[in-house]
């Protein structure tokens, strides 16, 4: 096990002792006799990992006989992976630092502090806001990055028997919610006073998309996988599919189902531990920001495959927001997906 960089922990893909929950199981490829490298770190409050495994064609080109210990034996190869992982991690951490709502210095915090006036925004933020706007429209207001005030009223996670908010509280909170109140122009944003933006629903998936781009650029001859706390994306056309476990919300940390990922992204929406029991009633964990109340019949978890992680993540979120209609919605989209209900 090598340890370099800030918080980036490396291990050979042959080391299976670290593999938990949502990971790839290398034993599946034992017969290819190909090993790779895994980098782990913490970011965005999740366990994140990068996996790189040489493509067979590439290893063959370098000679079959030495391929047994390819990566560890090939010093330059190992160094290149290390470097690439570090760059990709830096990109993830950059996005985390920029869009962390809880950090004093983040760009997002500055934006939220400047509510009530016009402010300049950069291209990246504009892109994310435009995407959020698109999703807001698509979902008819159910996906809303300004919804935090109303979401915060529902004390999910504070134990299972807290009190639901009153209608009056919700009405008050709704006054500070509504993406359409934002004015987004090419160079600037008007965030009305009292409102705030939370990019938590997009930033992690966006970071995964960016990280895989960094890795692909630097390690074109490797099969690659980026996993940011369950939102993951593989490099296109991996020679050997990555095996992904989808966790069962009833038995946390135990893979419920193994699926394979050969290219593209898989993202999961669902907070399996979140529901609220009050006076015998169980309140759903997905709140519709346009009303302030839980959506009926939301699944526990929705996983969706799509070419890009932001797209997979958003489809999962939109499906979740469909409540009872989640399955119908995803079938209508023709996506490969997996829905877990209680």
């Amino acid at each position: 096990m090598i340890s370099t960089g800030e918080g980036l922990k490396f291990s050979s893909l042959a080391d299976l002792d670290n593999q938990q929950a949502v990971i790839s199981d290398e034993s599946q490829y034992g017969h290819y006799n190909l090993k790779g490298l895994k980098g782990e770190f913490m970011a965005m409050a999740s366990r994140c990992e990068f996996l790189a495994r040489p493509k067979q064609a590439a290893s063959k080109a370098q000679g079959d006989k030495t391929q047994g210990d390819k990566v560890q034996g090939d010093k330059t190869g190992g160094e290149r992976i290390t470097q690439a992982f570090e760059r990709a991690m830096a990109e993830v951490k950059r996005i985390e630092a920029k869009y962390n709502r809880f950090s004093e210095n983040s760009v997002l915090t500055q934006i939220n502090r400047s509510a009530g006036d016009w402010q300049a925004i950069d291209d990246e933020t504009l892109g994310l806001l435009k995407f959020a706007e698109h999703c807001y429209r698509l979902s008819q207001g159910k996906f809303d990055i300004t919804a935090e005030p109303v979401l915060a009223l529902w004390p999910f996670g504070d134990g299972e028997s807290a009190t639901p908010p009153s209608d009056c509280q919700i009405e008050t909170a709704l006054e500070c919610v509504g993406f359409e109140r934002l004015i987004i122009e090419e160079l600037r944003l008007f965030l009305p006073y009292g409102m705030g933006i939370d990019l938590g629903g997009i930033a992690k998936e966006y970071a995964a998309d960016r990280a895989i781009e960094v890795l692909r650029r630097e390690l074109p001859e490797y099969d690659l996988l980026v996993n940011l706390g369950g939102d993951m994306i593989a490099s296109p056309c991996c020679e050997c599919p990555w095996q992904i476990g989808i966790e069962d919300p009833h038995k946390l940390d135990t893979p419920a189902r193994v699926v394979t990922l050969k290219s593209g992204a898989l993202a999961t929406s669902g907070h399996s531990r979140r529901y609220l029991l009050h006076q015998g009633k169980r309140y759903g964990h997905i709140i519709d920001p346009s009303t302030g109340y839980p959506i009926k019949g939301a699944p526990l978890s929705v996983s969706v495959f799509a070419p890009q992680c932001v797209v997979a993540g958003m489809l999962a979120t939109l499906a979740m927001l469909q409540g009872e209609g989640a399955e119908t919605f995803l079938v209508g989209q023709g996506t490969v997906h997996h829905i877990i209900r209680g």
């Binding site: 504009l126 892109g127 995407f131 998309d209 799509a306 932001v310």
Partner: peptide, 14 residues
């Protein structure tokens, strides 16, 4: 197709 629409939107900034 929400999928197509999202792909289009995401390609704009990715």
């Amino acid at each position: 197709s929400v999928m197509a629409s999202l792909l289009m939107a995401s390609s704009l900034f990715l």
